[in-house]
């Protein structure tokens, strides 16, 4: 894997910021992720069983009693934790931490033990319970940069690692460092309110770094000490 560098010459650390004040719960990110990452179509029956695969989902909670009910929602995806509890429990190294801070899932190594799925406190991991099928000609819209997973394999958000690699290769081809905003995962790209921001945390000037330094910043389930790479900004309106 090409080791890209940012302006300061160190390797990257990819992180994301989610501004809950801006999120409207429209689920454009969910749809974009499906399209980009060849996520299988689960169908009604499987969705009813709880097996609909979503690498990013909008979690919705109701607060209060009628008529003072309020919906709270937040996007939850793989947090790419620095101390990911899902990584050491995989017996075959199908899940490991890349030097750039991504929690990588190696599809052709996974044998489907599913310990990682249990150990993720965010329930961010998904499993392929069946082989995927697309009626023709839907197969023609599959992204060739992303492996189509067969049954028996765990999968989850990869921070669109194919776009990260493409961005780094493009920068290397052009002989320049990766700029902030070059690499945009599908969810970030499609968010109408720019609630999702992605970038290199090692670059102190990147938008991600600036946003993550705000007072409103918090992490999900921080007390567990997983050190996630996704920072949420508290909703105040």
């Amino acid at each position: 894997m090409a080791e890209g560098h940012n302006k300061t010459g160190t390797s990257h650390k990819w992180e994301m910021v989610i501004d809950l004040d801006r999120c409207t719960g429209c689920e454009a990110c969910v749809v974009a992720c499906h399209a980009e990452n060849n996520i299988r179509i689960s169908g009604e029956e499987e969705a009813a069983q709880g097996r609909a695969i979503n690498w990013i989902r909008i979690e919705r909670y109701w607060e209060g009693e009628y008529p003072n009910v309020q919906a709270r929602f937040m996007p939850v995806l793989c947090q790419h934790c620095d101390d990911a509890p899902c990584e050491p429990v995989c017996p075959v190294y199908a899940s490991y931490h890349t030097p750039e801070g991504l929690n990588a899932q190696v599809y052709n190594r996974c044998i489907g033990v599913r310990y990682c799925g249990n150990n993720c406190p965010y329930t961010a991991r998904q499993f392929n319970w069946f082989d995927p099928t697309w009626d023709e000609p839907l197969a023609e819209q599959l992204n060739p940069d992303v492996t189509v997973r067969q049954n028996g394999i765990m999968e989850k958000c990869t921070f669109c690692v194919q776009r990260i690699r493409q961005g780094k290769e493009q920068a290397e081809k052009e002989g320049r460092p990766v700029r902030d905003g070059d690499i945009v995962p599908a969810c970030v790209q499609s968010c109408p309110t720019s609630a999702l921001v992605f970038g290199d945390r090692r670059d102190p000037e990147s938008r991600v770094s600036q946003l993550a330094r705000q007072d409103r910043a918090f992490h999900l389930l921080e007390a567990l000490g997983t050190h996630p790479a996704v920072t949420y900004l508290k909703r105040i309106t």
Partner: peptide, 17 residues
């Protein structure tokens, strides 16, 4: 496993369907 992908590679010819 997964060696043959249903997605189309760049410049891959259309399939029979």
């Amino acid at each position: 496993d997964m060696q043959e992908q249903p997605s189309y590679e760049p410049q891959e010819a259309p399939r029979l369907h």
